[in-house]
Structure formats: C-alpha cells, structure tokens
Amino acid sequence: MAILYKNFRRNVINAGPLILLYYISISEIDTQFSNLFEILSFNLQIIIIYYWTLKSSSVLGNGHIFLVGIINDVVMGLPLGLSSITYLVVSFVASYVKNVTVNISLFTDWFTFIIAIFLSNLALMTLIYNFSSLKMEYSDIFYNSFFTFLFYPAVWGLFNFYQKIMVISQDD
C-alpha cells in the first residue's frame, strides 16, 4: 500500500509540468495582462515545452505536446494543427540544443530559447499569412515573444526548484 502510494505520488509529481501544460491549454487562464500593462503577454506553454524538453524530454513527450497544440487551437479558435506545429518546432530546437550542448546553464538555455521563439513564430506567421484568413499584429507577436523571452529565467528558476522535488521523489 505504501509502495503504491509512493509510486502514485511520484507519478503525480512527475506529471506536474504535463498537467500544467494541459491545464493552461484547456482552461481560460491566460497569460495576457493587458489590464496591468497594455503590451504585457507571454506564452507560458512555449516556456514549459522548451524547458522540459531540454531538461527531461520524458516528462512531456512529443505526443502530449502535439495534443496540447490541438487543444490550444480548438480553445483559441486557431486553425487546427497550428499550435501543434509551433510547439513541435520549439520541442525540436530544444532537442537539437540538448544534442549539441554539453553543459546546460541558464544562459545557454536562455539564449538558445531565442532561436526556439524565432523559429516557432516564423512557422506561426508563415502559416497564418499564407494559409489562413486570420489577422495578427506583428507588434503583438513581437511583444509576446519579447516577454516570453524575458520571463524565461524566472520560470526556469521555478522549474529548477520543482525538478529538485521530482528528483527527490524519484530517489525515495
């Protein structure tokens, strides 16, 4: 019974980032704070995907990232598959960085995150402007990307702390 409980607790803790990712996508919680600051918005999903793919790709899994993208598209009313593609692009950059980097630090993560944001936004804008009737402001995308990049270290710190809990749970 105790072992079962321990395993359950460990699984729940390990699935924390995935649950968070699903929850953010499915719920109406937004990361747009225009009431505080007109241009303040950031994409937490991208940060979660990038961080956890880089640190421990088994926590999220590509299939879940794809599914989260589909859910996000449905909830947000975007063309189906669009978010999946952008998230998978982020995941791809993270996997690539993981493959080519030996020592991972906040700064390497942070600066390679620019590439991930750039490529995901490139895919997003290319698909939207060529294959969709949706109108998006360049400036909005830019501000969103900028703040996503800016908040990355803070979220990185939080996830690093969380990862320690995960390690502890794996150890016991």
């Binding site: 590509n62 794809f66 063309p79």
Partner: peptide
C-alpha cells in the same frame, strides 16, 4: 512518436 512524424501529422491536419 518522433518529432518529424508529429510535425507531418500536424501539418496534414492544418
């Protein structure tokens, strides 16, 4: 699933 496979699937859906 590999990333490549999923990107292809997502693109097809799109």
């Amino acid at each position: 699933f590999s990333l490549f496979f999923l990107i292809i699937i997502a693109s097809i859906i799109f």
